[in-house]
Amino acid sequence: MINWLANPARFIRVSEKAVPWCGWTAAAVLALGLFWSLVLAPPDYQQGDTVRIMYVHVPAAWMALSVYLFVAVASAVALVWRHPLAEVAARSAAPVGAAFTFVCLATGSLWGRPMWGAWWVWDARLTSVLVLFFLYLGYIALVNAFDDPSRGGRAGAVLALVGVVNLPIIKFSVDWWNTLHQPASVMRIGGPRIAVSMLVPLVIMAAGFMLLFALLLMVRMRTALNERKAMALRLNAGAVAPRQPEPEPAVAAHTAIS
């Protein structure tokens, strides 16, 4: 699938069809997920209605990590095989991942205030996710910091691979350190430890976020490809333009001098 899509022309053709389809599905799934998590899901017997924040917070956290993994894998492909589409994919995905990380941090803060009595605590999980957010920002800044876009892409790819070190630290920080943040209750060995009535909206929201990511990724990749093509056309036009016959070049030169 990935190999087959790796041809930019084919990607453009396929994504043309997939974007509207993906967009409407994402909207429908997210609407269903919102209704389920805000209305149908029961309040927690300990946490009350604040547990509803979980349905945004936890899927956002999953996406924050998965999107980073996606960026890292695409970067590795771009570095090893010098594949242009992989580089475009990595740089298009990073802002989406940064947005998910921001949502994760902000909703976590709003959940922590009523539950722990603090907007922010410096425990291992929160700190490592904050570092992930900064890594995203650093990646975006680095990718856009060069006049030559491919240079930025390659520098970003190396950074993305260096930052992978942070992923296991985030994932296992709740197990390695005795922290305030609760350990994983869904993605754990031995199956999820969470009531089905809460698991269903959680999974729906996660699916909605994933579709949203796919949609944004395709739209952003198409944008990047369009912009690259436009730049090539402009450069081409600039190279061709001087060869156009100018009206009375001698007179033009003369007036320019005077």
């Binding site: 570092v131 650093g138 800044a141 680095l142 910091a145 240079r151 930025g152 190396v158 950074l159 260096v162």
Partner: peptide, 29 residues
């Protein structure tokens, strides 16, 4: 690593500190 990555970047020192400071958090802790 960050110094090598940011070679030739626009506003290099800002990019450099944005890259380096998050990575310096573990030694600091």
């Amino acid at each position: 690593v960050a110094a090598a990555l940011s070679l030739g970047a626009r506003r290099r020192s800002v990019v450099l500190s944005l890259l380096v400071l998050p990575l310096y958090i573990p030694p600091l802790i």
